[in-house]
């Protein structure tokens, strides 16, 4: 399974990547999408809101199951990946690329240091 080294991970199977200053994108890992199966809806109800680390920022619906999404670090939710409205299956096919879920403004970029590295995460799900 693929866990890119440039991302940081949580034990709840989200990844986060700083893209520009305090701006980051968040998605779920390849492991998570495989466990969920075919994803049919990404429901984000927190746009514009400030969400604490480890709090729920939305839910992901697969055909057979629904799962909460937890924010890796405290941040403000800026936007939802607009492609997912029509093509939620991108979370399955490209979880670290086109299947990203939300763009956020991280309150304190140093918080990312406390998250799991790719190595640590791959051992967790290994």
């Amino acid at each position: 399974m693929n866990f890119p080294a440039e991302l940081k991970y949580t034990k709840d199977h989200e990844w986060i990547k700083l893209v520009d200053g305090n701006t980051a994108i968040v998605g779920i890992t390849e492991f998570a999408q495989g466990e969920l199966g075919d994803i049919v809806y990404v429901d984000i109800t927190t746009i514009g809101k400030n969400v604490e680390a480890n709090e729920v920022f939305g839910t992901v619906e697969a055909v057979k199951t629904v799962s909460d999404l937890f924010l890796p670090v405290t941040a403000t939710i800026l936007e939802v990946n607009p492609i997912l409205e029509k093509q939620p299956e991108l979370v399955n096919s490209d979880p670290y690329g086109e299947g990203w879920m939300v763009k956020i403004t991280v309150s304190n970029p140093a918080d990312l240091d406390g998250l799991l590295t790719a190595d640590a995460y791959s051992q967790l799900v290994g």
């Binding site: 199966g37 075919d38 055909v63 057979k64």
Partner: peptide
């Protein structure tokens, strides 16, 4: 078995 190639497929 719950699924093989994926439920939609």
């Amino acid at each position: 078995p719950i699924s093989y190639s994926g439920i939609n497929d």
